[in-house]
Design a protein around this nucleic acid. Structure first.
Lengths: 270, 270
DNA sequence: AAACCCTCTTGCATCTGGCGCATCAATCTG
DNA sequence: CAGATTGATGCGCCAGATGCAAGAGGGTTT
């Protein structure tokens, strides 16, 4: 904690993250006190910071409850954030996958440091309740999406990226260190898709394939996940379907089959 | 210029705004220098501030051009708070609609497989009896809300989605198969709103318009329904009012008018 | 009614950390 | 090669973020 450059900005941004948490959303927003307690900060600072956010439209305040929630500005920015072509081209592909072959949850996700951020989800009709996975962060090392997103990285890059990340949480078969992660990535590279069997969560299996853009780098991952009892034997087939769909999506992004050597497309610190 | 509390945060947020400008988006992001010049700030500060934004995922950097653009994290925040915002922004719009122009029942609903789930209702004071529509499920194929929610789907997607769904229950004019449903959806797409005349229930007419979020996809439908004897001739007018309100709600959800590419549709003004 | 919460805002002294100048490394130019 | 342009960083200075404590509403209890 010796160094703290721009830390006040960082703390301010954390407030936005807190307002997007499950609890805060479910409760229709949080008040200043609640936010301050949750973030371990003084109420006065939270109050002042939120005022600036509110003036800029990043948050807005419920007139009755005094609770803050994310404001119009965030949504306006979101429309211009990320790769719009990826989203536009991805949506119909997800819909098709979920309606036809697989009938299980389909996700499109991107890499964020050592985590996987789901940006699009499509759930089949028979799903009881739609859990909103969009916007959620999960570890990259024990998920199929993560391994698809990391599929081009060599051992050294993995070591660097996962330095300081604790492995071993999740399902029974999760990789225990970078070495094991690398081994499984090599297998995925051989197949062109990644498969996990009870790594992220007990009873859950999944398959994912990388999506590349015109530069050849991996920009996203398409994946399917389902309970093992339902998907188990069909998993290899599902993986093939996912791979084919990912290749189709890649083609729409201008990928011509040639992948460059050792070029990371998006660099993210973490 | 006397007081300047939290002004550094304000300046930082302005950087995000600049990155969301048409120019910045069109050029695939801006570099540090360009941003600094445009904001009238020192390059060093912009550089340091953007690093924090990047670490938090609010912006990301193109590895080749070094240009910053808005990151997925903003998208994720909006995705997680989307439902909350739909309710929060929707409520006053429903209230306003019911109090002014129409004076009939207004509903906000979402799609659940092949059915429509109503999540918000506003009834006029003179309502005979208030049936609690919120939480209720009705078919999508013979309701205006349903057709508004399905407005982007092409014939193939409809076929897949409605495979195994029995049509023909409801009012006298209900569509009899997917083909007829598709025809009526095409009409709705042309108008920007859907109208039903005694399809769901004899004697009932309704109009609905799609609500889109920052992703461009349809996330909800706004609709008005009333007895034919009371609404009949005013229906086209009511449909226009609903459409305008739906567009306003869409704007509050970050929809910027750009529909996802998918199937190119007729670009209608007004 | 006063007393007692709870909420959030605000005044103020302290001193962190944001600021811009300067320099430096790296990459494109001609 | 020099020259221009890019973005990163060391450093001294003081704007401004911080946290305490007091104040102002708004409820609920006694």
């Amino acid at each position: 904690m010796a160094d703290a450059p721009q830390s006040s900005l960082r703390r301010a941004l954390d407030l936005l993250g807190a307002l997007a948490s499950d609890d805060a959303v479910a409760q229709g927003g949080w008040g200043v006190n609640r936010l301050a307690a949750q973030q371990g900060r003084d109420q006065s600072q939270v109050s002042r910071t939120l005022r600036v956010f509110a003036e800029a439209g990043f948050v807005e305040r419920d007139a009755d409850s005094m609770a803050y929630r994310l404001g119009w500005r965030i949504f306006a920015l979101a429309a211009r954030a990320g790769d719009q072509r990826l989203l536009a081209a991805g949506a119909p592909i997800l819909r098709r996958l979920v309606e036809s072959d697989l009938g299980e949850r389909i996700h499109l996700s991107v890499l964020q440091a050592t985590q996987v951020l789901t940006i699009l989800t499509e759930t089949p009709p028979h799903a009881v309740q739609t859990v909103a996975w969009a916007g959620r962060l999960v570890p990259a090392h024990n998920t199929s999406s993560g391994r698809a997103l990391l599929i081009d990285l060599d051992r050294d890059e993995l070591e660097r990226r996962f330095a300081g990340v604790t492995f071993g949480v999740g399902g029974p078969n999760a990789p225990r260190d970078v070495g094991e992660l690398h081994e499984r990535i090599l297998i995925a590279r051989g197949h062109g898709y990644a498969v996990v069997d009870e790594e992220f969560e007990p009873g859950l299996v999944a398959a994912a394939a990388p999506v590349r853009d015109f530069r050849g780098g991996v920009v996203a991952a398409l994946n399917v996940s389902a309970p093992k009892f339902r998907m188990g034997s069909r998993l290899p087939l599902a993986a093939q379907a996912i791979k084919a769909a990912a290749e189709e999506l890649s083609a729409q992004l201008g990928f011509d089959g040639a992948r460059p050597q050792g070029v990371a497309t998006t660099q993210l610190a973490g």
